[in-house]
Simulated assay, not measured.
Amino acid sequence: MDKRRIVIQGVEGCFHHIAANAYYGEDVEIIPAENFAKLIDLINDEAVCDGGIMAIENSIAGSILQNYGLLQDSGLVIEGEIYLRIKQNLMALPGQKIEDLKEVHSHPMAINQCRAFFRDYPNIRLVETEDTAISARNIRENEWKGIGAIAGDLPADLYDLEILAEQIESIKNNQTRFFILKRKKDVVPNGGFTKASLYFSTSHEPGSLSYILDCFSKANINLSKIQSLPIPGINWEYFFHVDLEFEFPSQFKTVMNKISETAKEMTILGTYNQGIVIR
């Protein structure tokens, strides 16, 4: 059986790669995309891949707003989700100690998550780069001594680096949520789904949004996420992206029928099972 080809944003070893392995297993072919727009384009090309994975929000940094907009226009379907606990490690070429390091490179978000650790090492200069895994790869490719990287577990294995300090992030329960994306024609119907993502707009009539939210509540459906997005070209009007959790698919189907006349431009992005947390 051929390996499944999965598109990620970033390079091999990044957190998208770790999440893809956690969801699909390690026997996958990783296809890197330099940005999220390119990721969407690649997933839509069936000659390139079987599907993809895209970060949508982080428990510290919040929603990745551009990705909500990309999803609306993508034509792709959310097949599932996964939550990855973000562990940041300090790594360098083998044989070095923390005291040998003059610089540590990583993505700005990773650096911010680890600043407290480096207060004990005031002589180390923190250098912002485009990606955690790229920082690790650069050390190996250039054989840089005296330079470390902050990254997850996987880059240390891929690029043969030694982890000098594990889990140096200040907040230990930081998680990133990823959507598993497929082309619509490739999705196998899931009759037992317990979660759904959709977006819609409403009229400017008083109470139109509150009516929809009240319908969810009365159907015993948990609104686990609501995110507003401007409607391009229409000032001060918004799409609402919502994630819904429920016990039975029939709850979701009933409430969709009830709000269909009030919600405008409503599109279901996907129905799926609630994701697990990978620690």
Score class of each variant (00 low, 15 high):
Thr262Arg: 09
Lys218Ile: 10
Asp45Met: 07
Phe117Cys: 05
Leu154Arg: 12
Asp243Lys: 09
Ile53Leu: 15
Tyr159Ile: 08
Lys172Gln: 13
Phe240Tyr: 15
Phe118Met: 02
Ile8Val: 15
Asp2Arg: 15
Asn35Gln: 06
Ser59Arg: 04
Glu29Asn: 11
Lys3Gln: 14
Ala116Met: 11
Glu81Gln: 14
Ala219Thr: 09
Arg85Asn: 13
Ser260Tyr: 06
Pro249Glu: 09
Ser228Ala: 13
Ala37Pro: 00
Asp243Gln: 14
His107Ser: 04
Ile234Leu: 13
Thr132Gln: 10
Leu39Pro: 00
Val187Arg: 07
Glu265Ser: 13
Arg85Lys: 14
Asn123Trp: 12
Glu99Thr: 13
Leu213Gln: 11
Leu84Ala: 02
Ile43Phe: 04
Lys97Val: 03
Asn112Cys: 11
Ala92Arg: 00
Arg137Gly: 02
Ser170Thr: 14
Ala133Trp: 01
Pro230His: 07
Ser217Phe: 13
Arg125Leu: 12
Gln274Cys: 11
Gly25Asp: 04
Ala156His: 03
Ala61Phe: 14
Leu164Tyr: 07
Ala133Phe: 05
Arg85Cys: 07
Leu223Asn: 07
Asp186Phe: 10
Tyr68Trp: 12
Gly192Arg: 11
Ala149Phe: 03
Ile147Gly: 00
Ser228His: 10
Asp214Gly: 08
Pro230Gln: 09
Thr129Cys: 07
Ala33Ile: 05
Glu265Asn: 14
Leu70Pro: 04
Leu39Lys: 00
Glu130Phe: 07
Ala156Leu: 06
Thr194Gln: 11
Leu198Trp: 02
Ile234Lys: 13
Glu166Met: 11
Gly95Phe: 08
Ser170Cys: 02
Pro230Phe: 08
Gly95Tyr: 04
Lys182Cys: 11
His105Arg: 13
Arg5Gly: 07
Ala33Tyr: 00
Glu34Lys: 15
Ile139His: 01
Gln175Arg: 13
Gly95Ala: 06
Leu101Pro: 05
Leu161Phe: 05
Ser201Cys: 12
Trp236Gln: 14
Ile139Lys: 02
Val77Tyr: 11
Asn173Asp: 15
Glu166Ser: 13
Tyr24Val: 00
Ser210Asp: 11
His204Met: 10
Phe193Gln: 04
Met256Pro: 00
Arg4Cys: 02
Asn21Glu: 15
Glu46Pro: 04
Pro155Leu: 09
Val104Cys: 03
Ile40Gly: 01
Tyr238Asp: 11
Glu57His: 12
Ala196Ser: 15
His17Leu: 06
